[in-house]
Write a protein that binds this DNA or RNA. Structure first.
Length: 220
DNA sequence: AACTCGGGGCA
DNA sequence: TGCCCAGAGTT
């Protein structure tokens, strides 16, 4: 796979940042505690943000601490979150993670990547979201959308998430990492879609490797 | 790298 | 119906 000039990547990212300068956070991820954010983020896997918000609104009214959620029990929790995809396994993970938080972390959600990923149901993406949103620790979370966008721009080949994180963090100012996560996802959903990407409506297209390849393919 | 987990929304 | 979703864990 040929390398795509770094200069092009930087221009593309600049265009996207400008395009989404005023984007609002549609998911409303303003939870008051790290624990709430952790639970909400675990639930968000393979489940739309709208559904997660509906579920957490109900859930956190009844239980929003590790102790309370454990008290709810796996069945009780499942009943609350059943409308999220993969709910049974998530309920199990959230209970187990809550117990671990109480036993190993003095009841507080850990604020380090290596510790967060030890929690069941928490992978690299979720951990970075928690670090960034709950603790204000700069991090870029790479999900399927961000990964796809980065791959198409020519930033990385997409096979190594850590590489994508690295490339993005290198090119985006540290103070903008948390916001970049949002607008990269937003772009991946609205324009740089998996199926039919709307390159015609994308301001980064002139600097995008994927767009270039598509154009070349059509001209032949 | 491929595969499974899975309910609900939407075309 | 069929396709998709702001992933993680296992093989």
């Amino acid at each position: 796979m040929m390398n795509w000039p770094q200069e092009q990547c930087d221009k593309a990212l600049g265009e996207l940042r400008e395009l989404y300068r005023d984007i609002e956070d549609k998911s409303g991820l303003e939870f008051s505690t790290p624990y709430q954010l952790l639970v909400a983020t675990i639930l968000s896997a393979q489940c739309t943000d709208v559904r997660v918000n509906k579920v957490t609104a109900e859930l956190f009214g009844k239980a929003d601490t590790p102790e309370a959620v454990i008290e709810l029990g796996e069945d009780g929790l499942l009943e609350e979150i059943k409308s999220c995809g993969l709910a049974p396994s998530k309920a199990k993970n959230i209970i187990a993670a809550s117990r671990l938080i109480l036993s190993d972390y003095d009841g507080e959600v850990p604020d380090e990547l290596e510790e967060l990923v030890k929690l069941p149901g928490v992978g690299r993406k979720t951990a970075n979201v928690v670090l960034s949103q709950a603790f204000g620790i700069p991090a870029i979370a790479v999900d399927t959308h961000v990964n796809r966008v980065a791959k198409r721009l020519g930033l990385a080949d997409g096979s190594n998430v850590q590489k994508v994180e690295q490339e993005l963090m290198q090119r985006i100012p540290r103070e903008n990492w948390a916001k970049a996560h949002h607008w990269l996802i937003w772009h991946g959903r609205q324009i740089c879609k998996a199926r039919k990407p709307d390159c015609a409506g994308c301001p980064a297209a002139p600097y995008c490797r994927y767009a270039r390849e598509q154009a070349e393919a059509e001209s032949e």
